[in-house]
């Protein structure tokens, strides 16, 4: 369980409380500037809130040494930066840094999980956007964290690559990991998340199953945009205007 309690962060988050469950995909949604990335960074232990606390299972996140926190929470930033032209395998291997063991088995499993095992020797500079995103996800998976926190992991991907990434993340959730994603695309959140947290101007507006948390009235209130859902649950499309 990853539990944010009464989180305040000056100008960005205002008294946000949200309890996230492992084994599920939770989407954090909201308009630009709503505090989505800030909440994710607080949940990852990368930003210290001005007040409030984050509890990870039975301990406070702030009390965990950085290495231990890194073993339990894998974080995928929005900017998928890779400074040197590492191979896919070396890139995924960076996920073992918090463990300090350089173990190859988890790296192998991570590469296989994102379908990159046959590209292990490819330099990062030769990868397509989708392959690069999967390689960076493999880096997180290689650390075998209990939680995977990703900031807009689908933003720069085409629809096929988005579905591939979601499939890999669903597999991780099915294996027991908690998956928390900042998502801009409300249809993806509606169709693929188990839980949705909606933020508005730094405050928690809604939290619950997607059908309720992303209802037409919530979208109109938070995004101030007339909208309606088409299609059946699990295959919804958002009609705007």
């Amino acid at each position: 369980m990853l539990w944010a309690r009464d989180i305040c962060l000056s100008g960005r988050l205002d008294d946000v409380t949200a309890k996230l469950e492992p084994g599920k995909i939770t989407a954090i949604c909201g308009p630009n500037g709503a505090g989505k990335s800030s909440l994710l960074a607080v949940l990852a232990g990368l930003l210290s809130p001005d007040s409030g606390e984050v509890q990870l299972d039975d301990c406070l996140l702030a009390s965990l040494p950085a290495k231990q926190r890194a073993r339990r929470i894998g974080y995928l930033p929005q900017v998928g930066e890779v400074a040197w032209n590492l191979s896919v395998e070396a890139l995924a291997g960076l996920g073992r840094l918090p463990h300090g063991d350089g173990a190859s088995d988890p790296v192998e499993r991570a590469l296989a999980a994102v379908d990159l095992a046959n590209m292990r020797h490819r330099p990062a500079s030769t990868l397509s956007g989708g392959e690069r995103a999967r390689a960076l996800l493999a880096r997180v998976l290689a650390g075998e964290p209990q939680w995977i926190l990703a900031d807009e992991p689908l933003a720069a991907l085409d629809i096929a690559q988005q579905l591939a990434m979601l499939r890999h993340l669903r597999k991780a959730a099915d294996q027991g990991a908690g998956v928390v994603l900042v998502l801009h695309d409300l249809s993806l959140a509606m169709n693929h998340a188990d839980e949705v947290v909606v933020l508005s101007e730094g405050r928690l507006h809604e939290k619950g199953p997607p059908e309720a948390a992303l209802s037409r009235s919530v979208i109109e209130e938070v995004w101030q945009c007339p909208a309606r859902w088409l299609g059946e649950p699990g295959a919804r499309a958002l009609q705007l205007g």
């Binding site: 990852a44 232990g45 990368l46 996920g95 650390g143």
Partner: peptide, 20 residues
């Protein structure tokens, strides 16, 4: 060395990997 390796992914990702 290990901290520099982590920095390959940028400062934010490096901190998430436990880099001080």
């Amino acid at each position: 060395g290990r901290s520099l390796d982590a920095l390959t992914l940028g400062e934010e990702a490096a901190r998430s990997l436990g880099m001080d």
